[in-house]
């Protein structure tokens, strides 16, 4: 069985996560071997996911950590293990 490009596109995400059934995976692989377009779509998607997940893409604001721990210290020192329920 041969599948066309549009069907392969539906499987890109599953292919990247390796969650496709063995049968589908093989069909997709066969298609990718001789389809430049789908190979480029797969490669670019994988590449883009690496870039968006890169720690440098979304940065912490300057002083974030200091402000956070100062705020936590107020809380921690203010109420030691509070018996009352707080939300």
């Amino acid at each position: 069985m041969v599948i066309d490009c549009k069907h392969v596109w539906d499987y890109i995400s599953g292919y990247l996560d390796d969650t496709l059934s063995a049968e589908v995976k093989e069909l997709v692989q066969e298609h990718l071997e001789h389809c430049e377009i789908c190979s480029a779509i797969l490669d670019s998607t994988r590449n883009i996911l690496i870039l968006t997940a890169d720690e440098r893409t979304f940065e912490l604001p300057l002083g974030f950590s200091e402000r956070l721990h100062a705020r936590l210290s107020e809380e921690i020192e203010g109420i030691e293990p509070a018996p009352s329920k707080s939300d």
Partner: peptide
Amino acid sequence: HVSPAVLVDWREI
């Protein structure tokens, strides 16, 4: 469906 951008020759970024 969301169709991807069709391109060839993806160069790794």
